[in-house]
C-alpha cells in the first residue's frame, strides 16, 4: 500500500439554514478557496476529485451536477461522485491514489438539509415495500435503537445527557460549530421528550454545510504538510437493512471496519454519532476507554448531511497535524440506525 495522508481540510460554517441554492455552490466556493489556498495549490494541481451528496436532500434529480461549477471544472477534471456521505468519497479517492494513477485528490461533500423536512426525507432510505410506506421518521427510528439500549442497560438517559453536555462544551472552541455552550445534564434531562426516549439534546441539529479534504501520496504529502495525518487504514462495511433482524445495540459493521483498518489504540476519536446514544454505542463497540472523544463537539453540535462524516476525518486529521494527537480514529456513518460504517485511522510521524 502507498502512504497516503490527509493534508488539507476546510469546512463551511455549520448553520441551521443558508440562503443559497441546494447545489452547494455558495458553500463550496469559499471552502475550495480556503483548502487550496492554505496548501498553495491551484485547481489544476488536483488530479482526482470525488464528492458525496444526495438528490433527496436537494429535492431534485442530478443535484450534484451543478456543484462542479464551484470548481470551475474546465479544462475537464478526473472526477467521481458517491450518493453517500463524502467520507465514502474519501474512501474512493484513497483507493484511486492506491492504484498509483494519481497522487493528489480533493474530496468534498455538501448538503442543504434545511431545504426539506429532514426527518421525513430520511424515511426514503427505508425498505420501500414494508417499512417506508408507514413513514417512520429518522428520529423515531433512532428512538427505537436508543430504547433498546436503555432497556438492556447498555446506556442511561443520564449518560446520554452527559454526551450532549460534553459535546456542547467542546464545541465552544470550534468556530464552525452550530451549537455550543455550557449546559448541565440536570437541566437537559428536565426538558420534555421529542420522541420518547429521545430529547432534543439527544438529536443532532439540522445543519446546512459543506466540507473538503485534500489527500496526498507520500512525498507529495510531505511537501504540502509539516505534519501529515497518515492514513494507516481505512475500511467500511454495511449491516443488514432489516431493522428488526439486527441487534440495534451493537454495530458489527463498525467493529468489522475497525478491524479491517487495523484499529488498535488511539489518542482521539471523532465519531459520527447523530444521536447521543449512538456515541455510547460506538464507544462500547470500539472499546474506546480513556480516549478523547469528539474534541470538535461532533455532529451533535453541527450535522451537515453528506459532509458530516468527511468532517470527522478532517477534524481527526487536524488533531494530528496540530500535534495534539499522534494517533486518531475518524468514523462516519450512513443509513438508518448506524447501518453502514466507515473507520479511518491516522497517525502523525515525527
Amino acid at each position: 500500500m502507498r502512504d497516503v495522508a490527509v493534508v488539507g481540510f476546510a469546512q463551511a460554517p455549520a448553520v441551521r439554514e443558508t440562503h443559497g441554492t441546494t447545489n452547494g455552490v455558495e458553500m463550496l466556493v469559499p471552502v475550495f478557496h480556503e483548502v487550496l489556498g492554505n496548501l498553495g495549490l491551484a485547481k489544476s494541481d488536483i488530479e482526482f476529485w470525488c464528492s458525496g451528496s444526495s438528490d433527496y436532500i436537494a429535492g431534485r434529480a442530478f443535484s450534484f451536477i451543478a456543484a462542479v461549477d464551484a470548481i470551475g471544472a474546465f479544462p475537464p477534471i478526473n472526477e467521481s461522485h458517491v450518493e453517500a456521505d463524502a467520507a465514502w468519497a474519501c474512501y474512493e479517492a484513497w483507493v484511486k491514489i492506491q492504484t498509483g494513477e494519481v497522487d493528489l485528490a480533493l474530496v468534498y461533500g455538501f448538503g442543504k438539509s434545511s431545504a426539506g423536512k429532514l426527518r421525513r426525507v430520511m424515511t426514503m432510505q427505508l425498505d420501500p415495500y414494508t417499512v417506508g410506506p408507514l413513514w417512520p421518521d429518522s428520529v423515531s427510528v433512532a428512538g427505537l435503537q436508543a430504547r433498546a439500549g436503555l432497556d438492556q442497560g447498555k446506556w442511561t438517559e443520564q449518560q446520554m445527557a452527559d454526551v450532549a453536555v460534553r459535546s456542547r462544551a467542546d464545541a465552544k472552541s470550534n468556530p464552525r460549530a452550530q451549537l455550543k455552550g455550557d449546559y448541565s445534564a440536570e437541566d437537559l434531562l428536565a426538558e420534555p421528550y421529542l420522541a420518547d426516549p429521545l430529547r432534543k439534546h439527544d438529536c443532532a441539529p439540522i445543519t446546512d454545510g459543506a466540507a473538503a479534504v485534500v489527500l496526498a501520496a507520500s512525498d507529495r504529502a510531505r511537501e504540502l504538510s509539516e505534519r501529515p495525518a497518515w492514513i494507516t487504514g481505512i475500511a467500511h462495511r454495511v449491516d443488514s437493512a432489516n431493522l428488526g433482524g439486527r441487534d440495534l445495540t451493537t454495530s458489527p459493521s463498525t467493529v468489522g471496519a475497525a478491524r479491517d483498518a487495523g484499529f488498535d489504540k488511539v489518542d482521539v476519536a471523532e465519531l459520527h454519532a447523530p444521536f447521543t446514544h449512538q456515541e455510547l454505542l460506538l464507544r462500547q463497540e470500539l472499546g474506546l476507554n480513556g480516549t478523547r472523544i469528539n474534541p470538535s463537539g461532533g455532529v451533535l453540535c453541527g450535522n451537515p448531511m453528506f459532509s458530516a462524516g468527511l468532517i470527522r476525518i478532517g477534524e481527526a486529521a487536524r488533531q494530528i497535524s496540530s500535534g495534539q494527537a499522534d494517533r486518531a480514529l475518524a468514523h462516519a456513518t450512513s443509513g438508518p440506525a448506524l447501518q453502514h460504517n466507515l473507520v479511518c485511522l491516522m497517525e502523525g510521524r515525527d
Binding site: 461522485h81 450518493e83 453517500a84 462495511r237 454495511v238 459493521s253 453502514h340
Partner: peptide
Amino acid sequence: VGKPLLRVHT
C-alpha cells in the same frame, strides 16, 4: 452484509 458496499452516481 458484513462487506464494503459503495454507491456510485455520475
